[in-house]
Nucleic acid binder design. Sequence first.
DNA 1: GTCTATAGCCAGATAGAC
DNA 2: GTCTATCTGGCTATAGAC
Lengths: 216, 216
Amino acid sequence: MARLSFREQVLRVREDAIVTAVNRLLAEKGFDLMTVDEVAGEVGIAKASLYKHFSSKEALAAAAMVRLMERTLAVVEQQRARTETSAVQRLEAVTRWALQLQLAGEMPSLPSQNSSLRAELLAHQTYLDLLVRVSDHLGAWIVQAQAEGDLDNSFPPEVVLYTVFARACDPVPGFLKASGQHSDEQIVDWVLAVCMNGLRGGTKPAAKSLPQAAAV
Amino acid sequence: MARLSFREQVLRVREDAIVTAVNRLLAEKGFDLMTVDEVAGEVGIAKASLYKHFSSKEALAAAAMVRLMERTLAVVEQQRARTETSAVQRLEAVTRWALQLQLAGEMPSLPSQNSSLRAELLAHQTYLDLLVRVSDHLGAWIVQAQAEGDLDNSFPPEVVLYTVFARACDPVPGFLKASGQHSDEQIVDWVLAVCMNGLRGGTKPAAKSLPQAAAV
DNA sequence: GTCTATAGCCAGATAGAC
DNA sequence: GTCTATCTGGCTATAGAC
C-alpha cells in the first residue's frame, strides 16, 4: 500500500466524514427526503464542495452502500474465523448484527423503486463485487445449515438469503422501539427469533436445541 | 342510506377511478416518486380537476389507504364468519391475502418517515377508525391462538401483530418474483410459511448464547 | 367541474472568483 | 478545493376562463 501524501489523507478524512453523514441521513430519512444541502450542512462544507467529491446525489448514496457492504463483509469474515460455530449460528450472528445496526440508526435504506438509483448501483463495480462476496458467503452457510438439518431444506437457498437480507429494512424493530416499552436487546431477540424459527421450519427436532427459555 | 342523485353517482365513480389510479401508482412507485400529473394522466382528467376532489397529494394517498383498510376489514370480517376455522388459520388467511395483493401490484406503500404524510393520516378519522378495527380483530385472534398453543405465547401480541402487518411491505416476495423462477402462488406459500413458522416458535435462537459480533 | 396556463417553491447541479 | 451566488427543471398547487 503506497503511503498517502498529507493532502490525500485530508481528502480521505473529509470524504469519510461525508459518507458518515450520508449514512446517518439515509438511515434517518431515506434517500428521497435526504437533501444534498443537509449533507453539506452536517459535514460543515458548502454544497458545491460536495460535488467536487461526489458527482451526484446517487453517487453519495452508492458510497454509503459501499461502506455498509464493507462493514458487512468484515462481520462475515469475523464469523468465518470462528471455527467452533455452526453455519446457522454464523448466519444468525450476522443477522443479529444487522438488526442492531438498524436499531442504532446506522442502517442506510434505499427505495428499491428509484430507477436512477438502481442504475447507479448496478453500474458500481465495487459495490456489486462486495455484494456478491457477502452473498456467496451467506449462501454457502445456508446450504451447509440445510444439509446439517439446522434450516428447513424445503426452502430454496435464495428464499433464506433474501429473508436474512430483508432484516436490514424490517419495519418491525422500529415499530417496537417506537412503542417505548422494550429494550433494544429484547427487540432484537424477538425479531431474530421470529426470523430464525421461521427458517428453521419443522425440519429440525430437539436434538441440538437449547433448553427452552421460560415464558416471560 | 339516502339515494344518490345522478350527479352524485358520477362524482362517486370519478373519485373511485382517482383512488384506483393512486392505489396502483403508490404500489408501483411509492409516494415520493408518484406525481400528481401522473395520477391525472392515468385518470384522464386535468390536474386542476383532481384538486377539486382532493385538496393535496397527501389527501390522495390517505384516500388510497382508507380504501386499503376497507378492503382489509372486509377480508377480516369474511374470515370472522368462518366459524369452523381456528384463530391462527384466520390470521394466516388474512396474511396470505395481503401477500397476494402485494404480488398483484395493488398494495400501496407509504414512506413511514414523511412527516406531512404522517400528520395527514393521523388526522384522518376514518382511516384511524378502520385501522383500529382491523388491529382489534387481529389482536383478538392472536391472543386466542396463543392460548390455544398455535402461536408462541412468549411473544407479546404486538410483536405478532406488527410481524403480520409488515408482510404488506415485505421486499422478499418482490425479489423472488424478480428472479422469475417461481410462480406467485409458490412465493406466497414460502413467505407465509417462514412467517407463520416463525411466530409458532418452539425453540429459542441459538445465537443468544454466542458472543456478539464486535462493531466494525 | 373541467380545462389551459402559470405561479411559487424547492432541490439538484453549476459558474466563477479566490 | 472551497466558497457564494445562480441556474435549471420539475413538482405542488392555484387563477381564471368557460
